[in-house]
């Protein structure tokens, strides 16, 4: 453990820092992201996401929400700064170790990104198959998930024949089927009716109770009121504001409001 050699145990505040490092799922330190030679899309982001916590990421269109999520699900490396993820330096992580980290992260893409020629069942089962789960072991959880999102009857349907809301539910089911340690969702309730949005949030909350750290990017400010204890990260022109002041403190226990 390099932090022991670095002398972190020399003082009590440093011990707390070591504890924080060990506990955090993600830690951003002065992170900036720039596409090509353009202006920085994300600037000076410093925050810590703790295990079992629930975060809403809000901000106007173009504020950098999707870019921040891409950093979280390791689709990009930052232009500067440091990112620690699951206790490892994500910047210097060798490329061949990225798949192992990505399997610990579930992603709901804004545009769903379902595989067009696979059935609903196969799309949901995809992360499990990639992880090498045997066919006999994945049938039950996928069937259960199909039931949960109300698409049992459409198990054999291709994405093109599903409505936008149905596709979104499949995308969410695919993201959570592997019980990821962190779930990153980009506008996951944008195309579903309020009742389904609530059901999906309940699914996220249930996962969160099992220890999954959830980050949901959304425009819908009302969603924030649905989950008690959830914290808000607000992006404004690529900079992070922390209105609940919770990002630097351990989260409160999560309660889903009735």
């Amino acid at each position: 453990m390099s932090f022991l050699r670095a002398g972190y145990l020399a003082c009590p505040p440093c011990i707390w820092r070591v504890f924080e490092l060990m506990q955090s799922v993600v830690e951003f330190d002065n992170v900036g992201l720039r596409y090509g030679t353009g202006a920085e899309t994300l600037t000076d982001l410093s925050f810590t996401l703790y295990p079992g916590s629930f975060y809403f990421l809000t901000g106007a269109s173009g504020a950098g929400k999707t870019s921040l999520l891409k950093l979280l699900y390791l689709a990009h490396r930052p232009s500067r700064g440091a990112i620690r993820m699951f206790g490892h330096d994500a910047i210097t992580l060798p490329r061949d170790r990225l798949p192992g980290f990505r399997r610990r992260i579930g992603v709901v893409f804004q545009d769903f990104r379902l595989v067009p020629h696979l059935s609903t069942f196969d799309n949901i089962a995809l992360p499990l198959r990639i992880a090498g789960i045997q066919e006999k072991d994945l049938r039950s959880p996928v069937t259960e998930m199909l039931d949960w999102i109300g698409l049992t009857e459409r198990a054999d349907a291709r994405p093109a024949t599903l409505s936008g809301g149905e596709q979104q539910r499949v995308a969410i089911a695919r993201a959570v089927i592997g019980r990821p340690e962190m779930l990153v969702a980009d506008e996951p309730t944008g195309n579903v009716d309020p009742e389904m949005a609530r059901r999906l949030l309940q699914l996220f909350a249930a996962l969160n109770k099992l220890g999954t750290t959830v980050v949901v990017a959304t425009h819908d400010i009302h969603l924030l009121q649905e989950i008690e204890g959830a914290q808000m990260m607000r992006l404004d022109k690529g900079r992070l504001s922390d209105p609940t002041g919770s990002l630097r403190h351990p989260p409160r226990p999560l309660v889903l409001k009735n």
Partner: peptide, 16 residues
């Protein structure tokens, strides 16, 4: 490419 990118984001390896 889209399918391969999705596989990658889910932890699929190059060899897969």
């Amino acid at each position: 490419r889209g399918t391969i990118e999705i596989m990658h984001m889910m932890g699929g390896t190059d060899l897969q």
